[in-house]
């Protein structure tokens, strides 16, 4: 187990290094630096050109690529992600992310819980009564969910519930000045969580259905039934316990998808989270910020996978890692 863990950790470290090289290298290709717009603002063009040159030197942007990467990497390893160029000029990127991280984790966490809370019962119903009316309805629903362009769904919800009906706030996380108002918080959360959960519910319920179907065919289920254990108990204890294993893996693997969804959802609902921050960074060429968030999300993904593996081992004693 320890050897397995060590090997995985090493592999993951190499993976993260690989990602950092790719991301750093590719962003280097984008023309333009943080001070380009100064060339337009000044009344003296020559003075502006001299100024831009000097500021680039101060940030080390005149250095060759490998040197810049090395400086960045060594600093990043000790938690210094550099300063933001355009989104929050001069601010440490780490602090910027910190201010948004909580909001994103709240959104992602709630969506994961919410989607599982829906997907689990409907997946089980489908599996227990396959080819029933319910099963067909649920299947149809999940197909709709899988085929729905999320952003379009989000925008349509915004129009209906905020603009036409005026029931829900049109965006943001809280009403300023109402930081402790729990109702206000919940109202702001409804649409982003629903939109982010939609695709998850669709995929998860399909997955739980098939996983459960597989389990219910097993001998021990039949044995349990033969012994006179009530059907509901068989499903919920024996069946679910075994069917949940692949679901755990799925949750680990879904983190990248969830984060991807967060970028779109946060952008639509102006949710002050990392996804929107990332997109802002991309659109404003704030490379230190983009690099840091990419690395952080890669870290989340890699960590999620590792946790899923470990959880698997904990839940299923048959599994041993070498």
């Amino acid at each position: 187990m320890r050897a397995f863990l060590l090997r995985r950790l090493l592999q993951n470290a190499i993976l993260l290094l690989f990602i950092s090289v790719i991301v750093y290298g590719i962003l280097y290709l984008v023309p333009g630096g943080p001070f380009d717009q100064l060339n337009f603002g000044a009344t003296s063009a020559t003075a502006a050109a001299a100024q831009v040159k000097r500021l680039n030197e101060l940030l080390g942007l005149d250095r060759p690529l490998y040197e810049r990467y090395w400086t960045w990497l060594t600093k990043a390893l000790v938690g210094d992600w550099g300063m933001s160029w355009t989104v929050a000029f001069g601010q440490p990127v780490g602090r910027l992310i910190e201010s948004r991280l909580g909001n994103t984790l709240l959104l992602m966490g709630l969506s994961a819980v919410f989607s599982l809370a829906i997907a689990l019962p409907i997946g089980i119903i489908s599996a227990v009564r396959p080819y029933s009316v319910w099963d067909y309805l649920i299947t149809a629903f999940s197909f709709f969910g899988l085929s729905m362009p999320t952003f379009w769904f989000g925008v349509m919800m915004l129009i209906i519930f905020s603009v036409v009906l005026g029931w829900l706030p049109a965006g943001g996380a809280i009403t300023p000045g109402k930081a402790n108002d729990i109702v206000d918080r919940i109202l702001h959360l409804i649409m982003p969580v629903v939109v982010l959960s939609l695709v998850q519910v669709a995929g998860q319920s399909r997955f739980i259905r098939s996983s459960m179907l597989e389990v219910l065919k097993q001998d021990y289920i039949r044995t349990a039934r033969a012994k006179g254990v009530p059907w509901a108990r068989v499903v919920l204890t024996h069946g679910l316990r075994n069917a949940i294993l692949p679901v755990i893996t799925l949750l680990g693997l879904e983190i990248p998808q969830l984060f991807g969804g967060a970028i779109i959802t946060e952008t639509i609902f102006t949710w002050p989270g990392m996804g929107r921050l990332f997109f802002e960074g991309i659109s404003k060429n704030d490379w230190p910020l983009v690099q840091a968030i990419t690395m952080l999300s890669a870290f989340l993904v890699v960590g999620g996978n590792l946790l899923a593996d470990l959880a698997y081992a904990v839940v299923d004693p048959r599994i041993r890692y070498e």
Partner: peptide, 23 residues
Amino acid sequence: DIMLSLPSLPLLLIFSKTLRDFG
């Protein structure tokens, strides 16, 4: 496996942006 475990949308966005901006 590495490619599978990458955060794809962020990288997709970075790639599209870079390629578009690459004169």
